[in-house]
Amino acid sequence: MPLADHRQEVFARIREALKVPAPHRHVGHTGEHPTAPNHDDGLPGSETFRAWLPLVGESLEEQITLFAQNSAALKTELHRVGSPAEAAEHLNQLAREVGWHRVATHPHPLALPLAEKVPLPRLVVGPGYAVTDMESCDAAITGCDFLVAQTGSLLISSASAGGRALSVLPPHHIVIASASQMVPDLGTALHQARLRYAREWPSFLSFITGPSRTGDIERILVLGAHGPKRLTVFLVP
């Protein structure tokens, strides 16, 4: 370590400060006199949050419908297709329309076969790939971990989406996922991620919700600020 750090003195100050307890606060209107919340049975957990957050239906079909609604609102282009082959047809049409020259992908059981059906030069990222090479690609085709109905989000990780850059550097991000990857809400997605990865967490996990956007100029929405301008999701059975 280049410099000695100051954790001992900071921790000492924290412990000293916490000797005086802070009052709990009831966050209703301030005239109500608060009663201290009861923490004997622990903090409220994500099972409890579910009762307060936006409602999600229980059946898969309801969840897919909600995911589709959220996608439409967020400008995620969602295609429910009957098979990977159908996804490939859509993709090739897209490639022709936009005039892609080159696509990037990664070794993934759904993404790689899809990319291979696009008759264009292809970068399959692996250790030591060149960033400039990836930057020259028109689209990135990746997998993901989960789809979140509640928010229309995708949870990706460096394991499921070909590292950190693939899903954010090229201007068009294509994701292929199966309906079995649908989860109702963020809490479930995080819980499932824990079950999948807790032995060895990837260094990177990200909830992606729609294409990159900004409202920094007069709070007017513009898509494609720095990340992808378009996000397309193929949902296969």
Binding site: P54, S158, G162, G163, A165, S203, S206
Partner: peptide, 21 residues
């Protein structure tokens, strides 16, 4: 917003087996 566009978790530098970061 219902949720922002990217909510990313970082748990360290590039880990063994990861291709970038």
């Amino acid at each position: 917003q219902q949720i922002t566009c990217y909510n990313t978790l970082y748990g360290g530098p590039r880990q063994p087996g990861e291709i970038d970061g």
